[in-house]
C-alpha cells in the first residue's frame, strides 16, 4: 500500500502556509498529524496532488488557560492533552476523550486540530467540543475568525472553514463552579472508533441541572449535539428517571448507520447507555468526585 505521488511543502510560518494554500487552491491538502490522511493515501482513497505539511508550525502547539478559556493550539498532539496537568485537573471530559483516541502511538502524532478539522463523526473530539461549547479559530488571508463549534461541522468530512483557511486554535470556555463532564465510549476493542460514545458537560445549581450540553460520536453523518437529551436535563432535579429520559431522548434523536459495529437498533440503545453513564459521571464530578 503505497501512496500516490504528490508535491510536498513544509512551511516554517503560518503566513507561509496560508500563502501556499492560496497559491495551490483546490489542489493543496493540509497534512497535520497524518494519522487519518496517510492511511487514506496509502489506500489511494485520497490522492492530493500537493501536501502542505504544517508540522513545523511549533507556535501552534500549546495547551493553557488564557483568560476565560482553555486555549489549545491546533497542532497539539493528543498525548500532550493526556499529560497536561490543567486538562487533567479542570477538563476531565477532555482528558477522558484524549485517552481513548486510537492508541498511544497514534496519539503521539495525531493532533487535536486535525481530529476536529477532519469533521469525521467517528472521531472523538467533535462530540467533546460540542459538549464544551468550544470555539474554533480559523486563520485565512483576510485574518482570523471565530467559528462557534455549533456552526463548524457542516457535513460528512465537511467543515465551515474556507479552502484557504487553517484551523489554528480551539478554545474551551472555563467550566464554572459545580461543573462536571465525562466522555464514555463503547468500542469493539481498545483504540477502535466508537460503536457509540457520549460527551456530557453540565453544571449543577444545588440539586438542579442548570446547564447541560451533550455531544455524540459515530451515530450520525455529521457530528451532533443531543439537543433533545439536553432539554430533558435542563432545569430538572437530578434523578435516575431524568437521566433515563435524557438517554432515551438521545437514542431517539441520533441517526446511526448499520455496519460491522452494530445495527441501528443496537447503536441507538448504546447511545442511551453511553449518555446515561456520562451524565452520572459528570454529575459525580460536578459534586467534586472523580
Amino acid at each position: 500500500m503505497i501512496p500516490g505521488a504528490f508535491d510536498y511543502h513544509s512551511p516554517r510560518t503560518l503566513d507561509e502556509a496560508l500563502s501556499l494554500l492560496q497559491k495551490h487552491a483546490g489542489e493543496a491538502k493540509i497534512l497535520a498529524g497524518g494519522q487519518s490522511l496517510i492511511p487514506a493515501m496509502r489506500f489511494r482513497l485520497a490522492m492530493p496532488p500537493i501536501l502542505v505539511d504544517i508540522n513545523r508550525l511549533d507556535d501552534l502547539r500549546y495547551v493553557e488557560e488564557r483568560g476565560d478559556h482553555l486555549a489549545i493550539g491546533a497542532m497539539t498532539r493528543e498525548h500532550a492533552l493526556e499529560d497536561s496537568q490543567v486538562v487533567r485537573s479542570s477538563y476531565p471530559l477532555l482528558h477522558d476523550t484524549a485517552r481513548v483516541i486510537a492508541d498511544p502511538l497514534v496519539r503521539n502524532q495525531a493532533t487535536v486540530g486535525g481530529n476536529i478539522a477532519h469533521a469525521d463523526p467517528a472521531n472523538d473530539h467533535p462530540a467533546t467540543m460540542l459538549a464544551y461549547h468550544a470555539t474554533v479559530i480559523a486563520k485565512g488571508p483576510s485574518g482570523e475568525r471565530k467559528i462557534p463549534i455549533d456552526d463548524f461541522f457542516t457535513g460528512l468530512f465537511e467543515n465551515a472553514m474556507k479552502e484557504d483557511e487553517i484551523l489554528t486554535e480551539i478554545r474551551i470556555p472555563k467550566p464554572g463552579a459545580n461543573s462536571g463532564g465525562a466522555y464514555t465510549k463503547l468500542e469493539r476493542k481498545v483504540g477502535d472508533y466508537a460503536i457509540s460514545a457520549a460527551a456530557v458537560q453540565l453544571r449543577l445549581d444545588g440539586g438542579t441541572i442548570a446547564e447541560a450540553r451533550i455531544g455524540l460520536t459515530n451515530v450520525s453523518a455529521v457530528p451532533m449535539r443531543a439537543r433533545a437529551a439536553e432539554a430533558e436535563l435542563l432545569g430538572k432535579s437530578v434523578s435516575d428517571a431524568v437521566i433515563e429520559a435524557a438517554g432515551k431522548a438521545a437514542a431517539g434523536e441520533c441517526d446511526p448507520s448499520p455496519d460491522l459495529r452494530g445495527t441501528i437498533e443496537y447503536k441507538r440503545d448504546m447511545t442511551r447507555v453511553m449518555v446515561k453513564r456520562s451524565i452520572h459521571k459528570a454529575i459525580a464530578r460536578a459534586k467534586g468526585g472523580n
Binding site: D103, R188, K189, V190, G191, D192, L260
Partner: peptide
C-alpha cells in the same frame, strides 16, 4: 469482504 483490514478484522491487544 467487509473486514479486510486490521481496522475491522479485530486482533486482540494486550488490553483484551
Amino acid at each position: 469482504n467487509l473486514s479486510g483490514t486490521f481496522a475491522d478484522y479485530l486482533l486482540p491487544t494486550a488490553v483484551e
